[in-house]
Structures are given as C-alpha cells and as structure tokens.
Amino acid sequence: MPVLLVVAVLVFALLRLAPGDPAAIMAGDAATAEQIASIRAGLGLDRPIVVQFGIWLGKVLSGDLGESFYFRIKVATLIGQRLEPTFALAALTMLLAVLVSVPLGVLAAWRQGGWLDRALMGFSVLGFSIPVFVLAYLLIWLFSLELGWLPVQGYARIAEGVGPFLRHLVLPATTLSVIYIALIARVTRASVLEALGEDYIRTARAKGLPELRVLVRHALANAAVPIATVIGIGVAILIGGVVVTESVYAIPGLGRLTVDAVLARDFPTIQGVILFFSVVYVLVNLLIDLSYVLLDPRIRY
C-alpha cells in the first residue's frame, strides 16, 4: 500500500504547513497567549512536525485514527456516524445511473445516428456542463416547493423506515446521477458500437437470432469491461461528488464532515477522512481489476 503512505505524507504536509492555529480557534475570543499555548501543548502541536507525523502514523498503523480536536470523539467514530448517509447516497446514485444509462447507451448504439442517439449525445455533453448545485436548486424548486412531493432537505436513516429513507434520497441521488448517466451512457454507446462492428455479431445476426438477444448477450457482454471500468471510476469520483450534494440538501455525510473539519482546522479529522477516502478508492480499483476476470474470459491474472 505505498499509495496510502504517499497520501498520508501528502495530507499531513499540506495541513501542517498551512497557516491557521486550531488551538487559537478552540480557545475562543477571550483567550490569553498562555491559554492558547497550553491548549497547543495539550494537542501535541508544539512538537516538531516529523515527530507528530511519526506518532500519528504509528497510531494509524495500529488502527487508531486519533481523536477530533473539537468533539473529542474518535475520528473512526465520527466517520462511522457519517458513513451511512454518504454510502446510501453514493449507492443509490450509482444504481440509478446504471439502470438509466446502460439501456440508453445500448439503444443509442443500436440506432446509431438516430434521434435517440443524437439526443443522448447532446444530453451527455450538457450533463457534463451543468453545475450540480444549479440542477439541485431546480429540482428542489420543482419537486419540493412547487409540487410538494418530496422533502427539501435532510436525511432519514434506513432504520427509520424505507419510505422516508427513499423520499429523502430521491432528489439528491437524481441530482448527482445526471453526470454519471452522461458518462456511462457515452461509454456504453461507444463500446457497444465497437462490438456491433465485430464479425461474431454479423454471424449471430445471420443465424437469425432475435435482435434483443444479439444486443444484450453478445454486444453488451463484450462491451462489459469498459463499462465496468467507467462505473468503477464513477464510484471513486462519487466520493467527491457527494460533497456538493450533501451541502445543498443538508445531508450529514462524510462530505460535510470534511468541509467542516477543514474550516475548523480539525487536523486529525481531516487526515482521517482523507485517508479513509483513499482506502475506499484503492479498494474500489482493486475490485474493478478483479471484476475484469469475471467479465472478460480472456483476462487471467
């Protein structure tokens, strides 16, 4: 895991070389220099940076992400509290994106140059270009304020019931999924298009197989690897995409936690969360690599 070590060094350096003193912030308006110094010593911030890094790394290796300067709660606990909303949002977004985009992409490829194809390509460029928050506000305005169908903000834990859970997540997930629908539909279209030009498709069609079967069993199956790759990348980048969405919809997820921690100079939390994200990133990439074996019989590790 040299990648994670690099991440650890980068994040630590970035934070500790920056100006801004968490001790002064914590002490409040009326604190004296001595009070601030004693808080700084209490946090261990008075030691050389290299020593601080060593201590932190040692703890991380033994599975301890440290304690938030502010809440004096274990960073791991904080992450645990925020995991469900972020995970739920990411999962629903991905599910929605795949369910919509893969059929769209296949259809567009099937009728290349047709109206659906052109509409999809146009939409996908648009999808990359509309800022997430503008879209979010449009959806809130339409579905929550004008029509009154959905809540405007917040998150309901799945334990509170599936109904409220989904009602709260529909808008954020839709907002966030647009860009992935654009992305995955494009790649699906391109890959299926490539597959449709291959000899075996012509053979299959010549044998008189139904068109749907040709499309799904042959063309789509052979286009699976690039699609899986792009979905995998999509999952990895979702991590960042949730930050904006969580902010607009007031979802108490990991994205908000990071922004708050950065503004408060809560070093252990920032380090912990970024490290956590990086681990997720590495794991997702690993899973994608493994999925190639399943999807493409030609690849064997």
Binding site: P2, V3, L4, L5, V6, V7, V9, L10, V11, I237, I239, G240, G241, V243, V244, T258, I274, F277, S278, Y281, V282
Partner: peptide, 10 residues
C-alpha cells in the same frame, strides 16, 4: 498515484 487517490475537490 497518491494524489489521484485523494478526491480532487477535497
């Protein structure tokens, strides 16, 4: 690789 493993927005 390390830089890429951190979400850009963060």
């Amino acid at each position: 690789d390390g830089i890429m493993a951190i979400p850009a927005i963060l």
